[in-house]
Amino acid sequence: PEAADLRALARHLYEAYLKYFPLTKAKARAILSGKTGDSAPFVIHDMKSLMEGEQFINCRQMPIQEHQQQTSALTAAHGVELRFFHSCQSRSAEAVREVTEFAKSIPGFVDLDLNDQVTLLKYGVIEVLIIMMAPLMNKDGTLISYGQIFMTREFLKSLRKPFCQMMEPKFEFSVKFNTLELDDSDMALFLAVIILSGDRPGLLNVKPIEQLQETVLHSLELQLKLNHPDSLQLFAKLLQKMTDLRQIVTDHVHLIQLLKKTEVDMCLHPLLQEIMKDLY
């Protein structure tokens, strides 16, 4: 494709990214570095501050559905970890909707076989969500609840097992990923590349997916050359991250499956259940 077409594709995906993802990397980094003036995030660093912060966590959830009624029915006796885990699930389900809308904006995606669109999302969406966590994280903690809260890494590590094991691998990945210093326009293309993976199990028609991915890859390569002229091999380094990402998702899904077995009161959000069933 012509360079001009590749640039137009990059612009289009960046616009879709800004449209569907409410907390950009630019905004997250401004919050993390204290450059947002008066709106510093509420910090959760222990159980007391978690209780105080729960009103923030719950204030932007989707309309009350059966799942959330179950969530709010959980009493303190069931454990703060489970209650927090349910809040995370609600936000994740909403994030899946955002990623779906972003996927639909990738030129050619909605023309793919509908079964293949489902497969691409099923396998791609957790990878995308983990990549999107990276800008929200630094070595000390992570923004949650649309940037209204900063939760410390030490607090997450202090939760009971296996909850304490859930976020640490994402921190390790994110701290390394953030050294690549991608911006939101680079991220938009990288997310599209992840979604358009032609090697997902059960795809019916791989060729058109690979063709779409190839175009986005060309656009990403050009974007990185223009946007990061001094960063050698950035394109190759970024593609290598996709391998690490698959392992993180596999481990994450296994942890959720373990939780389902060991936590009596655990109910998995129906959308997340759909995605994780028979995934890995």
Binding site: V118, K122, K277
Partner: peptide, 21 residues
């Protein structure tokens, strides 16, 4: 596959308006 992934399918088929999750 569509049958086993009704919500995903619904998200894909619907417009950009929020879907009941």
């Amino acid at each position: 596959l569509k049958e086993k992934h009704k919500i995903l399918h619904q998200l894909l088929q619907n417009s950009t308006s929020p879907v009941d999750l």
